[in-house]
Amino acid sequence: MAVSVDEVVPTGPVRDHTRPARRLGGRGRSVLEVALLTVLAVVMLFPALWMIETSIKENRDVYAIPAKFFDFKVTMDHFKDVFVASGGGRSALSVSFLNSVVVAGVSTVLATVLGVPAAWAYSRFGVKAKKDQLFFILSTRFMPPVVVVIPIFLMYRQVGLIDSKLGLILIYAAFNVPFTIWMMKGFVDEVPAEYEDAAMLDGYTRLQAFWRFTLPLLLPGIAATAVFALIFSWNEFVFAIFLTSSDDVRTAPPAIAGLIGGTTVDWGLVAAASVVFALPVLVFAYLVRKHLIAGVTLGAVRR
């Protein structure tokens, strides 16, 4: 989620800087605006561009000094290396990508299945000390996750969840449930309770009313919330590196990080793996771009 905050905030200051320039007249202002935005865009985009370039350069071009920006030979070898092991068969990286898909997917489904009905209940029923409960749920997200990594590690060792995909799935779901509840409560609040009331008078039970009327209206909200949860689980690094060690359990972030630190670093491979890793996030972020901004103010989503 930090990503979205960073993306949203800069537009403010940039506009502010241009304000004195108004005295220069319309043209001066827009020139300054364009210049500042260009600088910002270059600073933000350069690492991403460099990553993409590196992933399609041959190794000797990667190390070339001065750096080659345009006149290098394009190669897809690094991408092949991401998926295929040197002796043939599947590479360790491709296994870790698959693990990432499983862990992020299942934990998101779990968080959604648990969080959506909870959000509905909090929105619809007079629960005792509702505000305190909701605050408590939110408070589990106040601390940075890394704070609890050691206790979780010790607990997981006791119950045998260390180095298992299930362990990661559970911890990601645990982090995503509070978020799902808060975000979804905002969506549920906007669906008038009268739909359910009317359905109940029409002969349905409360659960049927929820399932048949409220849920379909919540689908866009659920999709947006699930994408946020998915991005969180997909990107998560700290827990993944502490709680897993073997290649067949590891998710992509620690696996990619593991490529760095040997005697030689195959930067081409690192870059190609990173590109493959970043693609799903970019696609999903594009899908929920409207909600990225609204999502910054948790639960206060307006459509």
């Binding site: 008038p192 009268e194 739909y195 009331d197 009317a198 008078l201 002969g203 349905y204 009327f213």
Partner: peptide, 16 residues
């Protein structure tokens, strides 16, 4: 409510 055999019209019409 389903077994009371009554119909209700709401201020906000609650059409599906």
């Amino acid at each position: 409510p389903a077994e009371r055999d009554i119909a209700m019209v709401f201020q906000f019409y609650a059409l599906y």
